[in-house]
Every structure is written in C-alpha cells, then in structure tokens.
C-alpha cells in the first residue's frame, strides 16, 4: 500500500466552482448536482474485505480485499478467469458474494441488485456501450431517471420535463468538461463510437455520486477516441470521484491509473503503482511469472 500521493492533485479547487446555479428548479431530485463527493482522501470511499464468491465447486473470488479512495483511478487487471468481472459484479450488485464485507463511505452495504448500487451512488459504464441509438443525448442521459414537469402536468399526466432535462444535461456535460458532445438534442446514432462512450461516461459521472466503474471503456474504440475517454477519466478523477477501471490495455492502464489492483486465480496478487513497477512487471505478476513481496 504505497504512494497515495501520486496524483491527489487539485480537487479542492474544483469542488467549489459549480453546484451553485443549478439548484433553481425544485423538481429535479438532486440529479447532476454531484459535484462534491467526499473530499476526505484518507478514507476509502469503497472498500471490500474478504470477498468470496463460488460457483458450485469453482471458486470465482477467493477472499479479495479492495480499497478505492476518492479522487483516484484504481485499475483492475488480470488474465481471463482471474476474477476481474466477478469482483466488479460483486461491487455493483450484479452478483451477491458468499461472504465478505463491503463498505461505502464507511457504511456496510449489501447490494442485491444492480439498482441497489446505483441508488447508493455507484455507476457502471459497460463495455457494450449501453446507450440507445434512436434516442437523443439528453434522453439517454436521463434514461430510466426521467424528470417530470412540476404541477399536475407532471403528477397527473406524467408529462416529461423535456426542456429542463435538455438544459440540465447540457450543463452537466459542460461542467464535466466533456467537449466531444455538444448538441443534447442530437440522436446518439449519429455519434461516433468515442462520442457514444462519452455519453455513457457523462451519464455515469453525472449520476454517480461517489464511484464510477468502467468496464473496458476503450476496448471498442479507436486510438484517438480511446485517448479522449482516458482524458475524461482524468477529469472525473480530478473532480474527486473514485474510479475503478477494468482494462486489458496495459498502456492505457499505466497512462491513467494511480494504483493497479492485480487479480490472479481468483485472489489478489498485489497492488502496485505505475511508478513502482513497469508494465512488464505488471504482466509478470498477472501471469504468475513474478511474485510480489508484501
């Protein structure tokens, strides 16, 4: 557990700039007002202790510990079958661990469904671009969290506040510093792969109060678009969010991560940093060719 100080840069300056003008509309339920995650960098925002998950006789997770601090990018790497996705699924509630404890902001949490983790402030960006091509950007950002108009139009007729959502979506994307998407009324199918991923990431960032989990966010993208996504990850990190990045792309991991959690054979092989170990070392630990003394 070394070098917490690698990149805890300038999040204190960021947190005060926004979140002032957005609160005028009484109707929206705190959405997009998530600019101030826990500023305390000494306590993990998300931590797991002794997670075990078995599938029949197959051990998927063999007592894994994980700590994620606010304002850091924690990469999770590992060979196929090392338990990366099982770990992530336990963290997001897609799977329920057999034993072990998870804490979010110090509070013990038990996620039974993905919606539970989402409600608690953990957002996930999936590999397979979970956006709806036919809907516009604002609709995608607000999908399954639509806001209704105030008054009887909203409560009785259940009418959507389209204009308000579009405005708030535009503001949120601007606040996130994401420049690749501009026009909130544009249909997502007219966007490039990188822009679509930007929509998915903005959605996660805007709603994810505390933690954003990105599962192979650059796998489907070209070089330039992949770099745009990495830039977005840095921006989110600098805003104080805790970010877990699952990736097979070692250059990307070494480029953006603050710490690297290496899974091997269902267990935790070790946590390194890009400055303490080279990429070759990381791969060696991942494959078992090298052991990490702790």
């Amino acid at each position: 557990m070394s070098a917490d100080s690698v990149s805890t840069t300038d999040s204190t300056t960021v947190s005060s700039t926004d979140s002032t003008t957005d609160e005028t509309t009484p109707h929206h339920g705190g959405i997009f007002s998530t600019a101030q995650p826990s500023a305390d960098k000494t306590h993990p925002v998300l931590s797991a202790r002794g997670l075990v998950k078995t599938f029949g006789r197959v051990v998927g997770l063999d007592g894994v510990d994980l700590d994620l601090y606010p304002g850091e990018v924690l990469a999770v790497i590992g060979d196929n079958g090392a338990g990366k996705s099982t770990l992530i699924k336990c963290l997001t509630g897609a799977l329920v661990p057999d034993s072990g404890e998870m804490r979010l902001d110090g509070e013990v949490v038990h996620f039974k469904r993905p919606q539970d983790s989402r409600d608690a402030g953990i957002e996930t960006v999936y590999q397979q671009l979970a956006v709806i091509p036919a809907l516009d950007i604002a609709s995608n950002l607000y999908l399954a969290r639509e806001e209704r108009r105030p008054g009887p139009l909203g409560s009785v007729l259940r009418m959507l506040d389209k204009k308000g959502m579009k405005e708030r979506a535009g503001k949120a994307v601007q606040d996130l510093g994401i420049q690749t998407i501009q026009n909130m009324g544009q249909a997502v199918e007219t966007l490039s792969g990188g822009q679509r991923q930007a929509v998915a990431v903005s959605r996660a960032a805007a709603f994810g109060g505390k933690v954003v989990i990105l599962d192979e966010p650059t796998a489907a993208l070209g070089v330039k678009e992949g770099n745009q996504v990495l830039e977005m990850i840095r921006q989110l990190r600098d805003r104080g969010l805790g970010i877990i990045l699952i990736s097979h792309n070692m250059p990307h991991v070494w480029d953006v991560a603050d710490r690297i959690h290496i899974q091997r054979l269902g267990g935790l092989a070790g946590v390194i940093t890009p400055s303490s170990h080279s990429m070759t070392d990381g791969v060696a630990i991942m494959t078992g060719a090298m052991k990490l003394e702790s």
């Binding site: 993905p114 999936y126 397979q128 979970a130 956006v131 399954a144 969290r145």
Partner: peptide, 9 residues
C-alpha cells in the same frame, strides 16, 4: 436495444 435499455435501468 433491449440489452442497453436493461443496463441503463
């Protein structure tokens, strides 16, 4: 996109 809709909640 049914799967994307499901993942979006």
């Amino acid at each position: 996109d049914r799967e994307a809709a499901r993942l979006s909640g």
